[in-house]
Amino acid sequence: MLAYAPAALLLLVFCVSVLHDRRKFSNAVVLGLAVLCALAAWLYELIRSDSTSGVVAAWSLLVVGAVAVLLLTYFLFVNGVRMLRREGRSPANLLSLAAALSIVGVVALLAAAVSVRNPVLTGVAAAAGGLALYFSFLFLCFVCYAFLYGRLRVRRKADFVVVLGSGLIGGTTVPPLLASRLKRGQDVHARLAKRGGSPLLITSGGQGPDEELPESHAMADHLVAEGFPAHLIRREDRSTSTEENLRFSKAIMEEAKPDYRCVVVTNNYHAFRAALTARRVRIRGQVVGSPTAAYFWPNATLREFAAVLVDYKRINVVLCSLIVLGGVLVWWAVR
């Protein structure tokens, strides 16, 4: 059982960290490391038992992993094509397709390195494989913890509900994506009001170059048309990004009530990254998500993951450089 000690310790660290602040990406990484350590300990115990179970388990994991890679590649390719047909050929809509092609490229490179046994190709393949494993691990951590974060209940009372904007159709109309956020905002507001509070709802979003009015104004008009009381709405109409949404909304909340608590509402694919940003700008509150169309979710999740990588670019550059250096060492060893 001593083999499971690292996994148990990491799980304890994870639980303590989540209780302290659930809005940290390190929570996702620690949880992923705990699962990896537990899996490694399980395999170690099976192999040490001198039975065929360890060998069978190891081969089963390899087969499951290979099948998972094939299915994931197919799923990403199909989703990428669907995104292009429904949403257009913008760079942001190409992420699913790019991810599928990247997986195919890495697998082909590894196969070529094994077949040709060229030192340079082997070093490049080692570096590419290492980078693929690194980003795959981080992505799985991100997706799993984002799923978990979205199901953690907001138990405290709140003074404000902040709904983040996402762009308008034709410059004036609230699209379905934003309408789902507003619907969730209304639901959260109603639940908080039942607890005896009297929260205000802040619609947050400035005016884009192709919009005839600020997003926050269109959002407020949509809420009023749905029967929400106009006197409970405040409008933040200067922001052009998620960070500005939160910073400018924070200023409104601090002015009204310095010791405020809030709930921020966005779409489910965006909730965890919005929570990371809320922590960075020191918002006192949690983030909840609203439903998103199934076909839109994979590409949007990849976009959010890429944005998180950029937010932590220093550590990622260092670790990726070490992986590339490992590829150089492999080349040096086999040349």
Score class of each variant (00 low, 15 high):
Tyr4Cys: 10
Pro6Arg: 02
Pro6Met: 08
Ala7Phe: 08
Leu12Trp: 05
Phe14Thr: 07
Cys15His: 14
Val16Cys: 07
Ser17Val: 05
His20Asn: 14
Arg22Ser: 08
Arg23His: 01
Lys24Thr: 12
Phe25His: 08
Leu33Asp: 10
Ala40Val: 11
Ala41Lys: 10
Trp42Ala: 12
Trp42Thr: 15
Ile47Asp: 11
Arg48Gly: 15
Ser49Leu: 07
Ser51Gln: 11
Gly54Asn: 03
Gly54Tyr: 04
Ala57Glu: 03
Ala57Pro: 00
Gly65Trp: 08
Gly65Met: 04
Ala66Leu: 05
Ala68His: 07
Leu70Pro: 01
Phe75Pro: 11
Asn79Lys: 04
Val81Leu: 15
Ala92Ile: 12
Ser96Trp: 02
Leu101Ile: 08
Val106Pro: 01
Val106Ser: 03
Val107Glu: 12
Ala111His: 08
Ala112Gln: 07
Asn118His: 07
Leu121Gly: 04
Gly123Thr: 08
Val124Ser: 09
Ala125Thr: 03
Gly129Val: 09
Ala132Tyr: 11
Leu133Asp: 09
Phe135Ile: 12
Phe135Thr: 14
Ser136Ala: 12
Phe142Pro: 00
Val143Asn: 03
Ala146Ser: 15
Phe147Ala: 15
Gly150Leu: 05
Arg151Ile: 07
Lys157Arg: 15
Phe160Gln: 00
Val161Asp: 04
Leu164Tyr: 04
Gly167Asn: 01
Leu168Ser: 05
Gly170Glu: 04
Thr173Asn: 14
Leu178Arg: 01
Gly185Asp: 08
Gly185His: 06
Gln186Trp: 12
His189Ile: 07
Arg191Cys: 09
Leu192Gly: 01
Lys194Ser: 15
Lys194His: 12
Gly196Tyr: 04
Pro199Gln: 00
Leu200Ser: 11
Thr203Glu: 03
Ser204Thr: 00
Gly206Thr: 04
Glu212Phe: 15
His217Pro: 06
Leu223Pro: 10
Leu223Ala: 04
Val224Asp: 09
Glu226Leu: 14
Pro229Arg: 06
His231Phe: 09
Thr240His: 13
Ser241Arg: 04
Asn245Ile: 02
Lys250Phe: 06
Ile252Leu: 05
Met253Arg: 00
Glu255His: 11
Ala256Pro: 10
Lys257Phe: 10
Pro258Asp: 02
Arg261Glu: 09
Cys262Ser: 11
Asn268Thr: 11
Tyr269Lys: 01
Tyr269Asn: 02
His270Asn: 07
Ala274Asn: 01
Ala274Glu: 01
Ala278Val: 02
Arg280Pro: 09
Val281Gly: 06
Val288Cys: 00
Pro298Lys: 00
Leu302Cys: 06
Arg303Ser: 05
Arg303Tyr: 09
Val310Leu: 13
Lys313Leu: 11
Arg314Met: 14
Asn316Arg: 06
Val317Tyr: 14
Val317Asp: 13
Ile323Trp: 10
Val324Leu: 15
Arg335Leu: 13
